[in-house]
């Protein structure tokens, strides 16, 4: 009896060891890749930002010197860095509410109980999200053309004179935001839609019978019910707004008058156009701190308002 139990225990111990071995064997290739191509470069970025890695160090690593915080100091004195910072914060500050509102509006529209052929509208509204960013940025550059663009043509029916969307320093940022909004709202819409479907219809119906206006129902019934989703979507949108690169690269090349240079665009030019990799790494690290900081503030605000 006891011998038998011992064999069973041994067998299960062997099984356990085999399972653990298999666990490591199956996860280690992916973990090694993550370590080598994600974790290591991210940590190296911090070290790189304390060096003067440039085109000379690229040719001969012997030219590399440790410079402490000199890269950061020089960045803080660089007007173009501050321009990129301000532009990015404008994208975040204006773009996030704009895109979240647009996504929520379309999600509520598609969620409406009176809507027919729901799947058709849902796919059509989501389609821009899966298109190739560079391709649609090229398309929008022509849609926003001052003389031949469809947008100005449409606006002309309302008596609006032609807007030089991509050629004027004040219109270029809103123009890119219109494109980014068009490109990304479908993603948020799908997330909102899933949350809205969990809000009981009876709740909204009861408020409606009590005579609550559409806006009052939005504020007191819908929004509280989808609070956590609202937070998730705004965190994701903020992170996305901090990472704009291809949009200015294709549509405006950062211009006019550097009005659309974003942090990432600045980092790209610093690193791969001028080969100031040390300084570029410092930009990357500051970008990371910005995203982290804003996300933490959002979480704190959400906690205070009781959303999570």
């Amino acid at each position: 009896m006891s011998a038998q139990r011992r064999t069973v225990q041994n067998a299960s111990a062997v099984g356990r060891a085999g399972e653990a071995r298999a666990g490591w064997a199956m996860s280690s290739p992916a973990l090694a890749a993550i370590l080598l191509f994600f974790v290591l470069p991210a940590i190296a970025s911090l070290f790189l930002s304390f060096t003067d890695f440039d085109i000379y160090a690229l040719a001969d690593i012997g030219n590399l010197r440790f410079v402490g915080l000199a890269n950061y100091e020089r960045l803080l004195e660089n007007p173009l860095f501050w321009k990129a910072m301000t532009n990015t914060l404008l994208f975040v500050g204006i773009g996030t509410p704009f895109i979240v509102a647009l996504s929520l509006f379309t999600a509520m529209l598609v969620n409406s109980r009176w809507l027919k052929w729901r799947p058709v509208w849902r796919v059509a509204l989501f389609a821009p999200y899966v298109t190739t960013l560079v391709a649609t940025a090229v398309v929008w550059r022509y849609l926003l053309h001052t003389r031949y663009g469809l947008l100005n043509y449409l606006l002309s029916f309302f008596g609006v004179p032609p807007v030089d969307w991509l050629g004027s320093p004040t219109a270029s940022l809103p123009a890119i935001l219109i494109f980014v909004g068009w490109k990304t709202f479908g993603y948020n819409m799908i997330i909102f839609l899933a949350a809205l479907q969990t809000v009981p219809r009876e709740l909204d119906e009861a408020a409606r019978i009590d005579g609550a206006s559409w806006f009052a129902r939005l504020r007191h019934v819908t929004l509280p019910a989808i609070g956590p989703t609202l937070l998730l979507v705004s965190v994701l949108t903020v992170a996305g707004m901090f990472q704009l690169f291809a949009e200015p690269y294709v549509m405006t090349q950062g211009g006019p008058a550097q009005s659309t240079v974003t942090i990432l665009y600045f980092m790209y030019e610093e690193g791969f156009k001028w080969w100031n990799l040390g300084s570029g790494a410092a930009v990357a690290f500051l970008l990371f701190l910005c995203i982290l900081g804003v996300t933490l503030v959002q979480l704190r605000l959400a906690k205070r308002s009781g959303a999570i």
Binding site: L40, P41, S45, L48, A239, M267, G271, A281, L287, I291
Partner: peptide, 14 residues
């Protein structure tokens, strides 16, 4: 939470 672009320059060197 760490965006991939953070490590892009060192990854290039690597």
């Amino acid at each position: 939470v760490v965006p991939g672009q953070i490590g892009m320059l060192p990854l290039f060197l690597e």
